[in-house]
Design a binder for these strands. Structure first.
Lengths: 233, 233
DNA sequence: CGTTCAAGTGTCTTTGAGCCACTTATAATA
DNA sequence: TATTATAAGTGGCTCAAAGACACTTGAACG
C-alpha cells in the first residue's frame, strides 16, 4: 500500500546564464549509477528532513552548485512517469533560474564533482544529458522564450549596472533573432522596472551609454502586449 | 535513506464547468481521516501500479468522478511541503479541467461517496475545503483567467453547438466583467478555431443566431494579443 | 404590416509594435 | 582645432488589433 504511493521526488533547476553571446545552462557529471559519468541537471531528490517545501529544495540545489543565494527562480512544469528513471516511478519538478554569469570558479565552490556551463544551441544542450534532462531543458527554454516576450525576466540575466545595448543583446540571444531597440526602450522606460544608475559606460570612441539597474531583483513586470517579431511582406 | 526521499504524491484536478451564470468546481466529501467529512478536490494519490504518468493519473481521477473521458486538461503548478498534510511531507500536482456541464447525475456515476458542484465566487469556493485545496482552486482559477485573455480555452466549457452569445457569456462569467462582443467575433472568426454547425438557434422572437462548433476539442488557439479590459478615462 | 429584440456589421479612436532615418555625444585622428 | 567614425538615443511613420458604440438585419408575433 505504502509502496504503491510513495514516489521518488526530485527538483531539477535549469540554471541559465549568458556569456560569449550564448545562452548556457549548468550541468554536473553524475558520480553514481544510473547514467554514471553522464552530464545531468544539477538537481536531486527532495530531502524531507531539511527541505521545508519544493521552492526551498530548488534553492538548496542551486546554492550547492553555484553558491548564488537569491537568483530569479520559477517553477516550469512537473514530469513524472514509470519510465523516465530505470529504477522505477519518479517525479521531478522542473524550475528555471536566471543569474548573471558568476565570477567565481564553479569547481572551487563544489569540491570534487565536476560542474560546467554548457551552451544551449537551438533549443537543446550540445551534449547528451542523462535521463530525460534534454527534454527538461527544452521545456524550461520554451517557457523562458515565451516569457521574455511579455515580461521583464530577461534582465535578470544581466549583472548591474547595464546599458540598453545589454538589454537588447540578452533578448536577441534568448530569442535567437534581432529585436527592435526602440520597442525595448518604450517598454523598459515606460514601465519603471529599471532606474538610472550613477555614471555612464564608454566603450571605445563612441557616445557613453546611460547605466541602469533593476528596481526589484525578485519580481518581474508584465507588459501589456507580447513582442510580435519581424513583419512579413 | 529511502524514507527521506520517497514522498506521498497526488494529483488534484480542479474541474471547472459553468451553469446558472456561475463558474463551478467539482468537490467530493472525504470519507477517511484526516479532514473526514470535509469537502475536497476530487484528487488522490498517484498509483504506480496503474498510472503510466502524471497526466494519465489526472485523467483517471477525472474519469472516476465525472465519467467524462476526454476533457480539456492542463497542468497548473505543483505544491509540496512538510506542512500541507498533517501526516507529513507531501506533493500534489494541480491540474485544471474544462468541461460542458455534464447531463448525467454525478452521484449515480460514483456510487457511495458524495460529489457535487460548488460555485466559485470571487476567487474561491464558497465553502471551506480540506488541506490547502482552497489555495489550489485559486491557483487554477488565476491560470484560467490569465489564459482566457489570450487563448481560446474558454469555449471548451461550452456544449456544442454554441452561439456567439454563449461565447460572450462564458468569458464574462470567468473574468467577472463585461466583454466586447466585437472583439470576440474578430478573434474567433479570424482564427479558424470554430466552424459553422447546421441550423440556427432561435430563442423567443428574435433573429436566430448562427451555431458553431470547435474544430478541435483537444487543443487551444493562441491569439496574438491579450484582451485589455475596459478603458479608463 | 409594423413592432420588437437580439444578431451581426461598420467604423472611429486608441495603444503600442515594427521600422528606419535622423540627431547627439564622445574620442581618435588629421 | 576641425573632421570623422561609431554607438547612443529620438522622432515620427505605418500597421494590427483592441475598445467603444451606433447602425442595419431578420424572424416572430400581434
Amino acid at each position: 500500500m505504502e509502496e504503491r504511493h510513495a514516489i521518488q521526488t526530485s527538483v531539477d533547476p535549469v540554471i541559465f546564464t549568458v556569456f560569449d553571446g550564448q545562452l548556457h545552462t549548468l550541468v554536473v557529471k553524475r558520480t553514481i549509477e544510473p547514467y554514471k559519468g553522464c552530464w545531468s541537471l544539477p538537481g536531486g531528490l527532495v530531502d524531507t528532513e531539511q527541505d521545508l517545501d519544493l521552492h526551498s529544495a530548488a534553492l538548496r540545489k542551486l546554492k550547492e552548485k553555484t553558491n548564488v543565494a537569491a537568483p530569479y527562480l520559477e517553477q516550469v512544469e512537473t514530469v513524472g512517469s514509470a519510465s523516465r528513471d530505470p529504477r522505477g516511478w519518479s517525479v521531478t519538478v522542473v524550475y528555471y533560474a536566471l543569474m548573471p554569469r558568476p565570477e567565481i570558479a564553479l569547481a572551487a565552490t563544489h569540491g570534487a564533482s565536476e560542474v560546467r556551463w554548457e551552451p544551449v544551441t537551438d533549443g537543446t544542450a550540445a551534449i547528451p544529458l542523462a535521463f530525460d534532462h534534454e527534454k527538461l531543458v527544452r521545456l524550461a527554454l520554451e517557457r523562458l522564450r515565451a516569457k521574455v516576450g511579455y515580461t521583464s525576466v530577461a534582465v535578470h540575466l544581466l549583472p548591474e549596472p547595464f546599458t540598453f545595448l545589454d538589454i537588447q543583446h540578452i533578448h536577441e540571444v534568448i530569442l535567437g533573432r534581432k529585436v527592435e531597440k526602440k520597442s525595448l526602450m518604450r517598454r523598459y522606460l515606460g514601465s519603471g522596472v529599471i532606474e538610472e544608475a550613477q555614471g555612464a559606460r564608454k566603450e571605445g570612441r563612441m557616445r557613453p551609454a546611460q547605466l541602469y539597474r533593476l528596481k526589484d531583483r525578485r519580481t518581474i513586470h508584465y507588459f501589456t502586449r507580447t513582442m510580435e517579431g519581424p513583419r512579413e511582406e
